[in-house]
Design a protein around this nucleic acid. Structure first.
Lengths: 350, 350
DNA sequence: TTGTAAGCGTTATCAA
DNA sequence: TTGATAACGCTTACAA
């Protein structure tokens, strides 16, 4: 059995180069403090031994890690994946490393991940939404780790945030739907319990209906998990009602695409028989046929700006508050006024 | 100015509970070694102070981190996102934490990230593909960090791998294309320089052509970066040739969807005027119209199995070699025999 | 410009 | 069952 080789340490390098550990450390961290000739000696030893600093030891001795942690609900959702990629690129360009964890939309797992990332020395945290237990805020405070909330804008909360106003944006879209003449509206939403974005969006629909004098109380809503198939199922149930809706407003594009797919199965024309709208404007939205009318969210821009904001907070350059980004409607084919036929069926005439 | 509060340490907890640091440590790591009454005292202090262990210190003193690192080309690509999500879920269920980094398809960045993850104490690494400089393998060896390659199967390489045979799978698909009667075939591929999966897939197309006695040498190939628009542009160039292809084989689904989109713009019918195929079988493949004929890759299964394999290696339970997964063809509408019209135009008859 | 040496917060070995 | 105490690998005054 070969002797269990153990990774080379600063000490090994120092010995190989015939200098002290302090000098090696300086070579690595502030090279200009050490003279050229010794620096070369040291660097050669570093290369020769394949030395790599022990992060833990460094974090222990210094007090910074240049690490940012991010916890997103899931990596499978394209909207987070995109924003996160931009977030990480921006971090990297500023000398920070990103640690990612995912919570599967569960607050208990999120809390566990927050603790894990903090104990790993994250200098700052990126979180999604404002729904979580109060104990974790206390924890973040005692640990003195700043956090930034993304994908939502809410200036009433304690944590700084960057994103858009989900409620306002969805309200704007719903108003268009109402303006076009739709009266029988239904909603397919992501599960709202641990998801304030979903909640706000539904609230936005209600706002628009109430403003138009419609009955927001009895708005049919189906909550479901994230996925095309889930959207399809929900749509199926909705259209099976005695008096089906003429417009189905979906909480995100993936659910909307599922709805459109199911419409095809049911032999329904979109938007002729029923209109469908989404939210997020992911690539899928322009691929599906008919293309989806949806709310465009600037994911990459949000990710990059979140990175800059968080670094500024970490480095105490600023104490940011909430930053609002615009999310505007993209009109495409999936939304149109209700057809005369369905309109008639809706009225008391027939 | 408030006194800069610093996070509580083991020592603080020990003092608050009136015990030694050793006891607190034991409470946290092997609770059954300490008697109930003291354990409660300690735990209360832990909660009270909001104590959280310092990961770096722990990694320094113990020698394990229960952390696995993964470096993927990009998080924006749905195929990696899916597999990675499964990978992380499996790791979590086995008590490991996942650290993710992305390389933007660049070997130099990948090397940097490998070093970073290793110095952070990753017990093992998940890598994509076999293309990287030799120095990094030496590094992994001296650091004694095991690595597993995923998304590709290659038993000739030193590192263990889990995935499918890209060349063989693409060859199978290309053979079907040839069998249907296509003679003028073109390829849209991801950049091949730092991507052995892309290379193998193109090789697979060549294999099929050669086997059928076609001229694989002059196979038109356009290399491009990942993205729907890039696929569309490449398709545009391909169809602008004096003698356009009757079948366009794409290296992945995203490029293929771009091709189909562009076909619509050009007024070409798929598959009537030109057939298009993909690779990966992501959700997009069934959404696009016509639905994409493609190679199905079991992403989630691969991710989960990769996790189990890697943990086994890390814990020295096994010394795994290459594991091959099946990737089978999904026939959908985007592929059909070439139409008589195009066939005529191709032949010497007209 | 370089070296010495005192921590940093844990874990683990030994004694008690 | 608990407590001292010596690592662990690195950074950073402070000295030389």
């Amino acid at each position: 059995m070969p002797p269990k080789r153990t990774a080379p340490t600063l000490n090994d390098v120092a010995q190989a180069a015939g200098v002290s550990t302090a000098t090696v450390s300086r070579c690595l961290n502030s090279p200009d403090q050490v003279i050229g000739t010794t620096r070369e000696k040291v660097m050669k030893a570093v290369r020769l031994l394949g030395y790599s600093p022990h992060f833990g030891a460094r974090a222990l001795a210094a007090k910074r890690t240049n690490t940012i942690g991010a916890i997103i609900p899931t990596m499978e959702n394209a909207i987070f994946a995109r924003g996160l990629q931009a977030f990480q690129e921006e971090l990297r360009s500023r000398g920070y490393t990103l640690l990612v964890a995912s919570s599967s939309y569960r607050t208990d797992i999120e809390e566990e991940q927050i603790r894990s990332l903090v104990s790993r020395g994250a200098d700052g945290l990126l979180l999604i939404g404002h729904v979580r237990g109060p104990s974790i805020y206390h924890f973040l405070e005692t640990q003195d780790v700043p956090a930034l909330v993304a994908w939502t804008y809410d200036k009433t909360k304690a944590l700084p945030s960057i994103g858009f106003d989900n409620r306002k944006s969805m309200r704007a879209l719903a108003e268009k739907v109402v303006e076009m003449g739709h009266r029988r509206i239904a909603v397919i939403s992501a599960a709202m319990a641990a998801n304030d974005r979903a909640r706000s969006r539904v609230q936005g629909v209600r706002d628009a209906m109430t403003a138009a004098g419609l009955d927001a109380e009895n708005l049919p809503i189906i909550e479901t998990t994230y996925g095309i198939d889930q959207g399809a199922q929900a749509f199926d149930r909705l259209m099976g009602a005695p008096v089906p809706p003429t417009a189905v407003i979906c909480g995100n594009d993936v659910l909307a695409v599922g709805a459109i797919k199911q419409a095809r199965v049911l032999g329904l024309d979109v938007p002729g028989d029923v209109s469908v709208t989404g939210f997020d404007d992911i690539e899928l939205a322009t691929i599906v046929e008919p293309a989806l009318t949806t709310v465009h969210v600037p994911h990459r821009d949000m990710g990059a700006r979140a990175a800059r904001m968080l670094i500024d907070i970490v480095e105490r350059k600023s104490t940011s508050k909430a930053v609002e980004l615009n999310a505007d409607i993209r009109f495409r084919e999936s939304l149109s006024p209700p057809s005369a036929w369905t309109e008639d069926a809706a009225g008391p005439v027939s």
